[in-house]
Amino acid sequence: MTEGNGWLDRAIEALKEPVQFGDAFDRHVMAEIEAGPGPRAWSSRFWTILDWLRRGRPVSVSPLGGLALAAGIALVALLGQDMLEPEVQGAPVAATVDGSVVQFVIVEPAATAVSLVGDFNDWSAAANPMQRVEGNGVWSVTIPLTAGRYRYAFLVNGSIWLSDPSAPPTLDDEFGRPGSVVTIGES
């Protein structure tokens, strides 16, 4: 050890010295322990059962039984998902309506810029640039819309036209580019 570490040695030695606490400290600690979480006697059986349930233990299952168990879990997961899903939910909806505010979403991991263009913004690429959601290639923008039926599309990197895969397509392709429609009710 070098001379320069002398202070460190002294600090270590000091920390090794036993620390003396007075009787008052001991009494205080014991009082806190006794006043702790309260009596459990009335529910000791409950806590015993809970402890038993929480305790890990090995379970042996035959290969066939394991397979059946896995199939059962998968079935419950599938049925449960279907049961939990509201009836009104359909395929993933990129344009979701919340009152008159509509969120448009598209997944384009390779894009550097995406704009929402449509009847609601004079088909201007500058009007509604979409924001990239960090880390997953999702682009999103939310805009207010009044009642009506709107044609729209996504403009990727200023030159690639994409329809919304989760919205009804436009019935025609009058201008040689894909498009989608969103409808906002009046009532």
Binding site: D122, W123, A125, R151, W161, F175, G176
Partner: peptide
């Protein structure tokens, strides 16, 4: 307004003029 929108859609998509007029007329 929908007629203006259709013309602007055609312009934004780079369609030829006669195609835009035909779409608006339809």
């Amino acid at each position: 307004e929908p007629l203006v929108d259709r013309a602007l859609e055609g312009a934004s998509k780079g369609a030829a003029g006669d195609r835009i007029v035909a779409a608006v007329q339809r």
